[in-house]
Design a binder for these strands. Structure first.
Lengths: 147, 147
DNA sequence: ACAAAGTCTATTGGATTAGTAGATTTAATA
DNA sequence: TATTAAATCTACTAATCCAATAGACTTTGT
C-alpha cells in the first residue's frame, strides 16, 4: 500500500493541475477541498517544493503552484519521493540497490527474476502516468458517467 | 518493499520445492541453508501451514513439506498472506476494498484509474509466477551462467 | 523413557506512520 | 510602518508494525 503522504501528494498535485491558470493556491484551500489534514499537508507540500515539483510564495496572495508542466510530472517520481523504491526487493531496485543477505547466487535467483520483471512493468506504467494524463482521464470519465 | 516475512516464506518454499521427493524437512535445515533466523522462520512456516500451503509432522523424522504442487503455489497468494493486499490503494483491492475517505467521486477518479491498471498487471504477473516456474527458471539460468 | 521435532504465548527494541502544536519568517498592502 | 496573510521550522506524540527472541509445551518415533 502507498502511504497517505504519497496519496495526499498526488491528490494535491491533481488539484493544482486542474486549475486553468497556474496562480498560487493556499494550503488551506487544498486541505479543505480534498479532505486532507492541513498541518500534514503542509509538510507534504514542503517536500514537493524541495523536490522542485512545486514552488511557493509567502505572504498575502501567496500559496503553492506547479513548477513543472503536468505532463512532466509522473507517478513514479512522486511515489519514489515519499515511499522510496518502487521495486519490491532491494536487489532489483535501480537507485537503492542492496544485496539480499540471505541470497546465495543473485545471477541465478529465480525469485529475483520474477520481481525484476514486476519492477520493470510497474515503473513503466507509473512513469507513463502523468498528472496531465490523470486530469484528462478524469474529464473523459466524467463524460462517460454523464451519459 | 515486500516484508522479510514474505521474502523468507518464498525462499523457504523454493527450498522445499527444489527437493526431488516431498519428504519432511526440519526447520533448522531450511534456516541454516537459507540464512533465515530460525525462530522467525518457525512463525512463518506455521502461517504457511495454517494457509494450507505446507503440512507438518511433529517428532522424530518430522518437519515441513509442501501440501500443494509447486505449480499451484503462486507469488500472489504468498504475498497476500504475509503482506496483505497487493493493490497500492484501498479503493482498488478486491478482497479488502475500502473507500478513500478523501475521495470525492470514485467513478471518475483518475488516480484510481491508474492504480487499478497497475493492480491488474501486478496481480496477473504474480499469479502466473508459480513456485514451479521459479525453480525451472533457476535451473535454466544456471545453464546460461555455466556457458 | 527419551529425544527430536513442531507449537504456543509473550515480550521486546526499533522503526515508521500519521499526525499535532506552536513559534517564526516572509511578503503584500493599507 | 503596522497589520495581516501566508509559508516555514522545530519539536513532539500516539499508535502501529516489523523483525526477532525466549521459553514453556505438545506430539511422535524408536
Amino acid at each position: 500500500m502507498i502511504s497517505k503522504k504519497a496519496k495526499y501528494a498526488i491528490v494535491a498535485l491533481v488539484h493544482l493541475a486542474k486549475r486553468p491558470d497556474n496562480s498560487p493556491v493556499v494550503i488551506r484551500e487544498i486541505a479543505v477541498a480534498e479532505n486532507i489534514p492541513q498541518k500534514f499537508l503542509e509538510a507534504i507540500l514542503l517536500d514537493l517544493r524541495k523536490a522542485a515539483i512545486l514552488a511557493s510564495r509567502k505572504g498575502k496572495g501567496g500559496g503553492y503552484y506547479l513548477l513543472k508542466s503536468p505532463k512532466d510530472i509522473n507517478m513514479a517520481d512522486i511515489m519514489r519521493l515519499f515511499d522510496g523504491p518502487i521495486a519490491l526487493l532491494p536487489c532489483v531496485t535501480h537507485q537503492y540497490y542492496e544485496r539480499c543477505e540471505e541470497c546465495k547466487d543473485e545471477a541465478t535467483c529465480g525469485i529475483r527474476d520474477v520481481f525484476m520483471k514486476l519492477r520493470t512493468v510497474t515503473v513503466d506504467l507509473l512513469k507513463n502516468a502523468s498528472l496531465a494524463g490523470i486530469v484528462d482521464r478524469e474529464t473523459s470519465l466524467r463524460e462517460v458517467v454523464k451519459d
